[in-house]
């Protein structure tokens, strides 16, 4: 088994675990964690496929894509955590801003 294959499989499994986490967990923080695990799985898969062995240079394009992916994923997670925080302060039926909707 090659290194690339081993880490690709690990990436696949992480992806599956993240999806399972989404199914079986309903708490929002858990769902945010599960989404992050899913994303890590995908990133691991991409980077493993870019790995070309000990002596060869890895493909830098997937690394660039994953870096973008990490930043976007972190942004989405941060927005989610913030929204969860706001939700805690706004109880049902409470009209915080006087909108008519």
């Amino acid at each position: 088994m090659t290194v690339a294959l081993l880490y690709s499989i690990t990436g696949f499994l992480l992806f599956l675990m993240g999806i399972c986490g989404l199914i079986f967990r309903s708490s929002l923080i858990r769902r945010a964690l599960a989404l992050n695990i899913t994303a890590s799985g995908i990133f691991l898969f991409i980077v493993a496929q870019a790995y070309k062995g000990e002596s060869a240079l890895p493909d830098p394009v997937p690394h660039g894509l994953v870096l973008t992916g990490i930043v976007i994923g972190a942004s989405a997670t941060a927005l989610m955590i913030y929204l969860i925080g706001v939700l805690r302060y706004v109880s049902p039926g409470d009209n915080d801003s006087g909108e008519e909707e």
């Binding site: 890590s40 980077v47 790995y51 690394h63 994953v66 870096l67």
Partner: peptide, 17 residues
């Protein structure tokens, strides 16, 4: 990430993720 020759990602993951 370091093992897979992607140290840039290792830094980003450790600091950001």
């Amino acid at each position: 990430w370091t093992r897979l020759d992607a140290p840039d990602l290792a830094l980003a993951e450790a600091a950001l993720g």
